[in-house]
Write a protein that binds this DNA or RNA. Structure first.
Length: 218
DNA sequence: TGTCCGGTTCAGAAACTGTT
DNA sequence: AACAGTTTCTGAACCGGACA
């Protein structure tokens, strides 16, 4: 019965998003970009029926807040174990086959640590030169504790440009390669505010599973 | 008036299951 | 293995409300 609830397609990823603090339908969509909205809607209802999540009105008409119940929160160990298992045993070449800049940037936005950055608004422009124009440039705008992700130029002065291939950045995010190694090799180019560039190790969020030791090599 | 958000609906494709 | 029926999933279109 438990497997029926948790093991249907996409469900573990939806629960992971909720465990990471996502509460809104469209934010869940961004976190699981290949899942269709109709199926997400269906899965949320199933999880609600199963007592894993509770949906409450958000205040905005028609919109709901989705939160894990105690039973849902109790799945944290299961979902994290699954993530660490994947990091340890799923071949990285397989993981790096389906690169997705929106998923990568969305996760970086979520995990970004604002405290090492100056206490003013900071704008960091990530550029993946090999991608098509509509997916090439991404902006992270950090203002206090608030972090926004933009796919169109927000118009602010850029504090730091981060230029690399999507593959390199994804490999760093996954913990397959080291940030410092890629920067030293010139595969990740940092231009702009030197202090922000220096502290990138502190504010840039990697995958929660990046530290897991890999059992299979590329 | 146009755009965005938070969904829902629906037709068709793909995958799965059971039968022969 | 082949086929037919069923289930699941996708992607596009759509809706209503909020907001600039």
């Amino acid at each position: 019965m438990a497997a029926e609830i948790v093991c249907s397609r996409w469900t573990a990823l939806v629960v992971r998003e909720l465990l990471c603090g996502t509460t809104r339908f469209n934010d869940l969509r961004r976190g699981v970009p290949r899942m269709s909205p109709s199926l997400l809607s269906k899965r949320l209802k199933e999880l609600e029926d199963a007592g894993v999540i509770a949906a409450t009105p958000s205040g905005q008409p028609g919109a709901m807040n989705y939160r894990l119940t105690e039973a849902g929160e109790d799945l944290r160990g299961v979902i994290m174990s699954l993530g660490f298992w994947g990091q340890r045993w799923v071949e990285s070449s397989m993981s790096l086959k389906n690169l997705d800049p929106s998923l990568l940037m969305w996760d970086m936005r979520r995990g970004l640590e604002p405290s090492p950055l100056p206490p003013r608004r900071c704008t960091i422009n990530f550029i993946y030169p090999e991608l098509s124009a509509d997916r090439r440039s991404w902006w992270l705008v950090v203002n206090g504790e608030k972090v926004d992700l933009c796919l169109t130029d927000p118009g602010y002065e850029i504090d730091l440009y981060v230029r690399s291939s999507l593959r390199t950045m994804t490999a760093v995010w996954m913990g397959i390669s080291q940030l410092s190694t890629e920067v030293e090799a010139g595969n990740i180019q940092l231009t702009g505010d030197k202090a922000i560039a220096r502290s990138i190790h502190q504010w840039l969020a990697l995958s929660p599973f990046a530290k897991a030791e890999r059992a299979v090599k590329n």
